[in-house]
């Protein structure tokens, strides 16, 4: 059974995508990613340390030949900044994918939807494979698809909050109408949150803090790997309907 996630002709091995932020060191990052089974890893674009050329580089630990690198525009608060970071990311020659984030508010890190929409349109025209981070807003998801997004990435909850899926019904509506993959991005806290997202029918889950911030990141990475697989299988299997009252599992017939 081929159940691979495909975006713009790119086939992905895993439905778990992971970030590389907040780890103790690069070695722990590499071990956690390995344990998660993810083949997409997100990275941020930042100034190179020009005073210490011997300092270690993330890509020395995360081999771009083995993992698909997904640069983000994290930290950008304007459309112009997001475009600048996206273009710089592509110029490194590692990836045409871009996880587009245009942040609208410092406290919640919720997206600036207007700027995200404009940036999506421009970057898609420039040939980027644009994966925008958005609210769990079905109307916005549709607008982004119309603007050229190759997938939509609604948040489960605020970035780094660990609150899990706050509005499964909106995610379900997005899934019902979307003609592109839907990847839940941000806000999951533990394995059950990931399983819920996959059981709803999401195409993948992208997370960072839930692994990097766990007591044992390597063990949590493995838990997430299983959660994605379990959730996906359950979704494909088709769950039973919810009912208010009991239905006996054992037959009445033959009772004494």
């Amino acid at each position: 059974m081929n159940d691979k996630l495909v975006i713009k002709g790119i086939e992905f091995k895993s439905r778990l995508w992971v970030g590389t932020g907040k780890y103790k060191d690069f070695e722990e990052t590499a071990r956690a990613i390995e344990a998660s089974g993810a083949d997409v890893v997100t990275v941020a674009v930042r100034r190179t340390n020009i005073f210490d050329s011997k300092s270690e580089n993330l890509l020395d630990y995360i081999d771009p030949k083995k993992y698909r690198i997904l640069p983000n525009t994290a930290g950008c608060y304007t459309m112009e900044d997001a475009l600048r970071y996206a273009r710089l990311a592509r110029e490194t020659g590692v990836s045409d994918l871009i996880k587009l984030e245009v942040i609208g508010d410092e406290k919640t890190l919720f997206p600036d939807v207007c700027a995200t929409l404009q940036a999506t349109e421009i970057l898609a025209k420039e040939g980027f494979i644009v994966l925008p981070y958005i609210n769990d807003d079905p109307v916005m998801a549709q607008r982004l698809v119309d603007a050229g997004a190759s997938a939509v990435m609604p948040l489960a909850a605020p970035i780094g909050s660990g609150l899990g899926i706050r509005n499964p019904y909106n995610i379900k509506i997005i899934l019902g109408q979307a003609v592109v993959p839907v990847i839940v991005d941000a806000g999951v806290g533990t394995a059950s949150d990931v399983a819920v997202a996959m059981e709803l029918g999401c195409d993948a889950v992208l997370l960072n803090t839930a692994i990097a911030g766990a007591g044992d990141p390597i063990a949590m990475a493995e838990a997430m790997k299983h959660a994605v697989m379990a959730g996906r299988l359950a979704y494909k299997a088709g769950r039973i309907p919810r009912k208010l009252y009991a239905t006996a599992s054992s037959p009445i017939e033959g009772m004494l």
Binding site: K22, V45, R47, N72, A74, I159, N208
Partner: peptide
């Protein structure tokens, strides 16, 4: 001049 590379991020 700006010189950038990739760092850990989510």
């Amino acid at each position: 001049v700006e010189i950038v590379n990739f760092v850990g991020g989510g």
